[in-house]
Design a protein around this nucleic acid. Structure first.
Lengths: 202, 202
DNA sequence: TATCTAATTAGATAATTATCTAAATAAAGA
DNA sequence: TCTTTATTTAGATAATTATCTAATTAGATA
C-alpha cells in the first residue's frame, strides 16, 4: 500500500481550492506567508496549515530571510507527479502494437543499443542521435547513480567522465530528458517512476 | 473560478484510496459494480458512491449489459488532466533566469527559431536538435491542428507532410513531447491547456 | 533587554465525506 | 406476474479537515 498512499497524498494536496490558489500565486514568484494570507484573505495560521500540506508532498520550497519565510513553487515535483500519473495506467497498449510482445521487443532493442554504444570497457562511444536510443543510453547511465542521493555538480561531472569526456553535453542531456534533477547547485537522480507499478498492491 | 473548480474537482476524485484502487483495477479491464465491491471488500452502495465521483470528472465510462453495469477506465481524460497539470505552471520562470523580462525574451526566441527553421513557403527545414527550440517548432506545428478533433494516423501523416517528408519522426516527436495524444489508432491534439491560464481567477 | 514582526501551534467549530444498512428501482428470466 | 440479481437512493454515523482566534515561538532591531 506504499505507493497508493503517495498517489493519494499528492492528490489530496491539490484537492483544495486554497492550496491550488497558493500554487498559482507562487508560480509568479516567491511570496511570504504574510503576503499569501493577504492575497487570499485568510489568517496567517491558515496559510501555515496549507503550507504544511504542500510541503509534505514537496510542492513548495521555503527559505528564510530575516524573520520572514518565502515560499516558492517546486515545479520539479509537480511535473514529476503529473508525468508519473500520465504513465501510471500505461499498460500493454503502449507504443504501436506489434505482433510480438512489446516488452521483449524493447528489451532486445535496449540490449542492441547498449552493445552498439557502450565499449567493452564500459565507456560511451557517443550519444545516439535518435531519441529512443538516446533515452536508452541515458537511462542506462542514470541507473548507475544512487537514487535519493544528492550530487554536487563536480561529482556529477566526475561521474559522467567515467563514461565520456564531454560531461557538459551529457549533463545537459540528463536534465533535458529528466533523468537528472537540478535544484540550486545540487543534482539528484530522477526516480524512474515516482510510484511504480501496482502488481503487488491491488 | 471556473477552471479552479475543475482542477480541484479532478484532484478530489483521485484524493481517495478507494477510488484510486478502483482505477487500478479497471486498468486491467472493465468490471461490474458487484465485482468491484467484492474485490475491494465494500458494499455495492459504496462502489456506487465512488463511481459517481469518478464519472463526474470523466475518469470512468460505463455500459449496461443485461442488468449489470460494466465500468471501465477512461484513459483519455486521465492523460489529459495529467498532461494539463504538467504544463499548468509553465511560466516566465522557465529555464535559467535572466535580467530581461522572460516573456519578451521567449517571444523573440520563438520568432527567431521559427524564422530559422520554417521556410518562406511554410515548410519545416528540419527539427531543431536543441530541446527548447524543438519545442517551439513542435508547438507551432501542433497549433495548426484543430483542438478537440480526432485524426486517423493517415490524416496525421498527411498533415505533417505539408511541412516535412519525414512524418514518422515528427509524429513520434509529437507524442514524446505530449503535443499529440494517441488512443488506440486515433490521434488528437493535446489542448494547449485543459484548464487555461488563471489571470482572471486568482 | 525589550520590542517588533512574522510564523507556528493549540484548541474549537463547522463542513465535508466515506462508509454502512435498509429500502427502492431496474432489468431478466421463470 | 413473481422472483432473482444488480444497482441506486436515503439516511445515519464517524472521521477528516478548513478555518478561525488566541497564545507561543523565532529572529531582528532598537
Amino acid at each position: 500500500m506504499m505507493q497508493l498512499d503517495k498517489i493519494v497524498g499528492y492528490h489530496k494536496a491539490l484537492a483544495d481550492p486554497t492550496r491550488v490558489r497558493i500554487l498559482i500565486l507562487l508560480a509568479d514568484g516567491e511570496l511570504t506567508g504574510q503576503a499569501l494570507a493577504e492575497k487570499l484573505c485568510l489568517s496567517p495560521a491558515t496559510v501555515t496549515h496549507h503550507a504544511a500540506k504542500l510541503r509534505a508532498v514537496s510542492l513548495i520550497n521555503e527559505r528564510r530571510d530575516k524573520n520572514a519565510i518565502f515560499f516558492s513553487l517546486n515545479m520539479y515535483f509537480l511535473k514529476q507527479y503529473a508525468g508519473a500519473m500520465q504513465r501510471l495506467f500505461d499498460r500493454p497498449t503502449d507504443e504501436l502494437k506489434e505482433n510480438e510482445p512489446m516488452d521483449e521487443k524493447n528489451e532486445r532493442l535496449k540490449q542492441s543499443v547498449l552493445r552498439n554504444f557502450i565499449t567493452s570497457e564500459g565507456r560511451l562511444k557517443h550519444i545516439p542521435a535518435q531519441l529512443k536510443k538516446k533515452r536508452i543510453v541515458l537511462e542506462y547511465l542514470a541507473e548507475q547513480l544512487e537514487p535519493g542521493r544528492s550530487y554536487k555538480e563536480k561529482e556529477i561531472n566526475e561521474f559522467i567522465q567515467q563514461f565520456h569526456p564531454d560531461f557538459a553535453t551529457i549533463r545537459r542531456e540528463f536534465i533535458m530528458h529528466a533523468y537528472l534533477f537540478r535544484e540550486q547547485e545540487i543534482y539528484e537522480r530522477n526516480p524512474r517512476d515516482m510510484w511504480e507499478k501496482w502488481e503487488t498492491l491491488t
